[in-house]
Computed example of a mutant assay.
Amino acid sequence: MMMECLRCQTPAMVRKEIHCRLIGYNIVRAAMIASALKFQRCRNRLSFTGALQAVDQFAAYLRRRSVAVIVNSGNACCKRSLS
């Protein structure tokens, strides 16, 4: 998750950056727990790295999908639901 170094310089922004990184970490852990419950697996046996890769792939899919909707709509201001 590239949490080795902080890029912010002010104390307030460092706190925000740490907070955002903790939110991201907790999102991945929540996805792991949800997956373990859904597929009746032990959550301690799941790989954090594998879960992070799955979340990254899903985020990339959502980005591609949203760009495709904007391009296909013919109007950048037009929004429509993804179904």
Rank of each mutant, 00 (worst) to 15 (best):
L22G: 03
I18Y: 07
R63Q: 15
R64P: 01
R45Q: 15
G50K: 03
C42G: 12
I70F: 02
I27Y: 02
E17K: 02
Y25N: 07
A51I: 00
F48V: 07
Q40F: 03
V67K: 13
R63H: 13
V28S: 00
S47K: 00
N72L: 10
K16A: 11
L46P: 04
H19R: 12
L52E: 01
I18Q: 09
M13Y: 12
V14I: 15
A30M: 09
R45D: 15
M13R: 14
A68I: 04
F39P: 08
C20V: 09
N44R: 12
A30H: 10
R45S: 14
V67D: 13
N26R: 11
I33P: 00
T49E: 14
L22F: 06
R41K: 15
R45M: 13
A31M: 05
S47W: 08
R65Q: 11
F39G: 07
R41I: 10
N72A: 12
F58A: 00
L22R: 14
A36D: 04
A34M: 09
Y61G: 07
A60C: 12
V28I: 08
A68D: 08
L46E: 02
N26G: 03
A59V: 09
M13C: 15
C42D: 15
N26F: 06
V14D: 04
R64E: 11
R63E: 10
K16M: 10
A30I: 02
M13P: 05
Y25S: 02
A54F: 03
I23P: 00
V71P: 00
R21T: 04
R43M: 14
N44H: 14
Q57Y: 04
Q53H: 08
R45V: 13
